[in-house]
Design a protein around this nucleic acid. Structure first.
Lengths: 241, 241
DNA sequence: TCAAAAGTGTTTCCCTTACACCCATGA
DNA sequence: TCATGGGTGTAAGGGAAACACTTTTGA
């Protein structure tokens, strides 16, 4: 909910946004054999959270999610999927938000719309780490990549949201062939295998992996990549269609 | 949204319920080799819809969904799963609801909470047709089973919601082993195969199906079932754990 | 010429498919 | 004893797992 102050400042009554519904986005990236998650930090509070936002009154919620991810990464044409709606009453912890808002210079009255109960629609996005430009919503906040295995504690139930997003990613990786969205345009088979091994958290056999991927008929073989390493140069591949 | 008048009558301002969020439930049953869906009809309007409801202010949304399904079927211990949230702006068609409310004897003012934009959380439920007791929310409405292949037109985007629920059921049938929830406690292998064939809409080979199911180790073989038919009596099975 | 990593060949194994066959039941 | 559907046996086919092997690269 990185936009909460922004939305709050623009229209303190929450005008223009649907009330009671928020979007939380788990934005995955892949770099140095590590899965990364984009997190925002509310400065002066030490609180970390998933990027998020609200839905405009005339906006489709899927478009709102695209907008949120786009604003935080500077990218469009993003792979994005809804995976769960988090609606337990126990999520409702207004004190945490009061703290965030106070640190931002607002002294919200108790009935403020942002202090009401919210339901969150969880989306996960897969982006090309090399092209994403993490961008905070406002000047005092930060927006940065964190290793999935080394995240700070997050507000509310955001840690569980990340967990569930990862479960969904794992389940869909094979049968929806979405992993390519985490890689640059061109990549080696080794890159792809490392990605799979990282996401699934298990070693794969190279010959089997290569054959399986090639047999899918969705990879185009390009030129070779000479990395300078003392070994055979791997082919570069591109995802087709 | 079978409860809208109920909720509206109890508290015209929508007090006690979260605003802007509804639950729609696709309740599947299986009978006579047909997949059935539970639909409600708003009498005096000829409008059909999915059973639905709202979320109480202190209630988890998953519990609200359980409550809705429980109220319409008379069952508890129901298999229920969230599958999508429908949040396009184009869903917002207040005229249809005005008509429903007017037919129910209410003349809602334009700003009425039920005439605002709503986002729907879609759940699908799998119930034992033989035990379910379809129960309308209020006296003028009906609540009945319809063949999936022979449904009346539904309000709003409810037909697409059913479609997406069916897609989800198909995708999960094999890998989550949830089909048993559609059958009575005891069933024959033929019953189970018919269920699979109906849901997946394709013929399966009996030997392969039987071996696959038995190899899962989740079926307990009981006594034989003498149906009176002039053929070998099939075994009854029960789903274990 | 050597080590490191990429890529291919080949065998084995297992699960699914396909079909043949036997079994029990009531008319 | 016959038709009907239930259940098992068995052989063929296809894909994954495991491992051996060849190839290319820079030191």
């Amino acid at each position: 909910m990185s936009e909460q102050r922004e939305a709050g400042e623009i229209n303190p009554g929450g005008l223009g946004y649907l009330k009671g519904i928020a979007i939380d986005a788990v934005i995955f990236g892949f770099h140095d054999s590590q899965l990364k998650v984009l997190l925002i930090e509310y400065k002066r509070t030490g609180l970390f959270a998933l990027p998020g936002g609200f839905i405009r009154e005339l906006e489709n919620i899927n478009d709102a999610a695209l907008r949120v991810v786009s604003e935080r990464t500077g990218l469009d044409n993003i792979f994005l999927d809804q995976f769960y709606i988090f609606g337990d009453y126990s999520r409702y912890q207004p004190d945490e938000f009061k703290k965030i808002m106070s640190a931002g210079g607002m002294a919200p009255p108790d009935g403020h719309w942002l202090l009401q109960r919210f339901v969150s629609v969880g989306y996960y996005a897969l982006v090309d780490f090399t092209r994403a430009k993490p961008t905070p919503a406002i000047i005092f906040d930060s927006c940065e990549w964190y290793d999935l295995t080394n995240m700070p504690p997050l507000i509310q139930d955001h840690t569980q949201i990340v967990r569930k997003a990862l479960d969904t990613l794992r389940a869909h990786l094979d049968d929806k062939l979405i992993g390519f969205n985490l890689l640059p345009e061109e990549f080696t088979m080794g890159d792809l295998q490392q990605l799979y091994e990282t996401v699934l958290d298990k070693k794969l056999l190279r010959p089997a992996f290569q054959r399986k991927m090639l047999s899918l008929g969705i990879l185009e073989r390009l030129s070779k990549k000479f990395s300078g390493g003392a070994h055979k140069a791997p082919y570069l591949y591109r995802f087709i269609k």
